[in-house]
């Protein structure tokens, strides 16, 4: 596999943009691995992927324009598409995550309320039983001497 033979300025631009884009993508993915919550993770992912795409596609445009000695801009298709779709995907995912977190919190709250209500009912029942027992024992000695 032989790399194409470009003039020096084009070589520097292509290699530099490719390395820059790959490094940005790697940074976004490191953010995906290192951060704590989902909302934190979605943020570097969207930024890193978008900018990495733009840089690598600029490298590709420069490379093929110099190789074919005319402007080759069909990479702009991928560029526009990815720039439009990455934020849309992240927004859809974040909304889904928000919905799931809210429904999970709601389920937890319902479960806690049911638990508390059951505890309260049990305490009331126990109090009533104790009161009944107290009434019985206080009734018994009074009736005894008569």
């Amino acid at each position: 596999m032989e790399a194409p033979d470009l003039p020096l300025w084009a070589t520097v631009i292509v290699a530099g943009f490719a390395l820059y884009g790959a490094a940005l993508t790697l940074l976004g993915t490191i953010g995906l691995v290192r951060l704590k919550t989902f909302y934190d993770r979605a943020h570097p992912l969207g930024l890193g992927l978008t900018m990495g795409n733009v840089s690598i596609l600029i490298a590709s445009i420069v490379c093929f324009s110099v190789l074919q000695t005319r402007p080759v801009v069909h990479e702009v298709l991928i560029l526009i598409f990815v720039t439009l779709t990455t934020p849309v995907t992240m927004m859809l995912l974040a909304r889904a995550a928000l919905f799931r977190d809210r429904s999970k919190a709601y389920d937890q709250r319902v479960a806690t309320e049911a638990h508390l209500a059951a505890q309260k009912q049990a305490a009331e029942l126990e109090a009533a039983q104790r009161e009944a027992a107290l009434v019985q024992t206080s009734d018994a000695p009074e009736q005894g001497p008569e």
């Binding site: 032989e2 003039p7 070589t11 290699a15 390395l19 790959a22 993508t25 790697l26």
Partner: peptide
Amino acid sequence: NVTILAWGLAGAQVLLGLA
């Protein structure tokens, strides 16, 4: 120039593979 480009693109490939 071919060597510079080959090494630069290989580095980019390694970084993308790590990602």
